[in-house]
Amino acid sequence: MFRQAVISISDLWAGYEADTVLEDVNFDMYQDDYVGLIGPNGGGKTTLIRVILGLLQPDRGKITVMGASPKEGRRHVGYVPQFQVEDKHFPISVWDVVAMGRLKPGLFSNTFLSPHDKEAIEKALEQTNMLDLRKRTMNELSGGQRQRVYISRALATEPKILLLDEPTSSVDSQSSTQLYELLAELNERIAILLISHDLTAISTYVKTIGCVNRQLFYHHSKEITEDMLHSAYECPIDLIAHGLPHRVLPSHQHGEEHDRTN
């Protein structure tokens, strides 16, 4: 049976002005996937997210989201950004944050929430167990609760793909476990792409793992084989251990050998 990829990237190069951050990236993701991408800081994780969301135009190559250009297709993407500390004291309630998931284009098209909008918001809050706290302001919440609000906001968009950027960066370990359990549940209906530098946490929950470090190492393997884990693990560790940013490994299969010689 032919399966339509929800995200499809081929021969993609992207970066900022003369500085290429991602090169020759090929990646296909399908409806029931739950992909964890790990990689070191500066390895291109954020750039990849920006390209998928149509916030950065790639220099070369092709990318489609739900079969369309990122700017079109991104309305099917529930984006869960990394929590920004400077937003912490912004005066906004949980409900109003989640209502952002129902934003539509147009200067005056968001004056009222339709009954369907309200339903979607309530449902999204229920799914993350945050409905009771809907009147709270964001700065009254713990890190784990804030993350749940962001996931609710993404769910309120009624997405086909959930895209999470470092979801556990400001969350304690117990909330982080709950978070991954929730994501596993959501994956029954929604494709999930999770990007993080935290390998140990995500490897337990995701179905497949890839590694972003200038290039994307990903084989869409259903099971996390020892070899797969190792190669994914190799690249950030190698980078952190030897302090060589932007080093491109010739091929990650040779990683082990490479490490020994160092």
Binding site: R74, Y79, P81, D96, L103, G106, L107, F108, T111
Partner: peptide, 24 residues
């Protein structure tokens, strides 16, 4: 502000998310 309150709140709080929602 009455007609565009949710837009204004959204872009003030999280411009990137608003862009991804294709808000103007």
């Amino acid at each position: 502000v009455v007609l565009s309150y949710r837009n204004l709140l959204a872009i003030s709080y999280d411009e990137t998310f608003s862009t991804v929602r294709n808000a103007h």
